[in-house]
Amino acid sequence: MESNELRIFRVVAQTGSITKAAQSLGYVQSNVTARIQQLESELKTQLFYRQRGMILTPTGEKLLAYAEKIIYLLDEADKALNDSCDPSGSLTIGANHTISSLRLPKLLAQYHKTYPKVDLSLTTNESNELIYKINHFQLDGAFVKTLPLSDENIVKELVFEETLVLISSPLYNDISDLYSKPFLMNTIGCPNRIQLENWLNSKGICNIRYMEFNNLNSIIEGVIADLGASFVPESAIKEYEEKGFLKSFQIPAQYNITKSFFIRRKDSLMTSSLSKFIEMIELNTPYQKLLPKDK
């Protein structure tokens, strides 16, 4: 069982398709098929159900867990042996939709300019998916909104707490005028959306209509155009409100606080590229270090 076979196996498992795996790896399909068959023959077991795609068998699920660890350790060894004070190599960062549009563009541009030898990449997704990728060695670090109540594999490096406000077109002076309007929010599972629902439910409002946008700028533009209202970080709309493009309303404190974290896997290697990235976040954003007992 060679490491390259495990890498091919992992990509097939992740994509659920020989065709997609071949495209991702830059191989011809017949090569990928042959390597999977060779691995199954060597292990004397079936790793995939071949019906409407490639679906892992129970044995395949077990092998995937080991493959991820083996590939991670090999890559980590390479990083450790080649790491230096001058950051280089790959750095894969994840961020949820709000954070990626609100704070990251300038930060990433600054990092790329300061450390041009680092191959920096960004993945945008929901927090739960980013946490999954952290746990499965697919990201070096990620900005997320929510965390599991307890996950011993995750370290919270930095935290940022901010206030959420209800926003609308300047046409509305009374917050009650917004209760029946559509709310422009991220998809189900977004912490801000959950807090909005809890607040509205506390006021007896349960029939909530949504227009789903996974982009903060699109949400703000939609509110300015009077498509509906939204519930967003106060820092994101200050300039718009000062220019008279929209209006904000405060809601009770138990519903208006949101926290975001920068996380990494606890047993991951702290490379110089990741260490410098964390340092740059702390110096150039409102994110702050957590005390060891809070990590």
Rank of each mutant, 00 (worst) to 15 (best):
S121M: 03
Y66K: 15
I263C: 06
I93K: 04
L291Q: 12
T45W: 01
Q195M: 12
N82Q: 09
G244L: 09
T124C: 08
I220C: 07
P58G: 09
I93E: 00
F262L: 15
E5P: 01
G204Q: 10
T33F: 12
R52L: 01
R50V: 08
T258H: 09
L283A: 15
G204I: 12
H136I: 06
L47G: 01
E76M: 15
L39G: 02
I131G: 02
A34L: 10
G244P: 05
S3A: 12
N135K: 13
D174T: 07
N192L: 10
Y240I: 02
V144P: 01
K259C: 02
E42K: 14
T146E: 10
G189E: 10
G222W: 10
S168N: 05
L120A: 06
N186L: 13
L166D: 01
V232G: 01
S88V: 01
V11E: 13
I175Q: 13
P182M: 05
L102Q: 08
S30N: 13
K113L: 14
I167G: 04
L120N: 04
N284R: 13
Q14Y: 02
L43Q: 06
I224A: 08
L63Y: 00
P87Q: 07
E162V: 02
Y111W: 05
N82T: 12
L91E: 02
L104S: 05
E161F: 05
G228D: 03
F160V: 04
F213H: 12
D140I: 10
N4I: 14
T98F: 07
W199K: 08
L39Q: 02
I167P: 04
Y240G: 00
E42L: 14
F213Y: 15
T271M: 06
T123H: 08
N214W: 10
E129M: 14
A67I: 05
D75G: 06
D294E: 15
K106Y: 14
I237C: 11
K62A: 11
P87H: 05
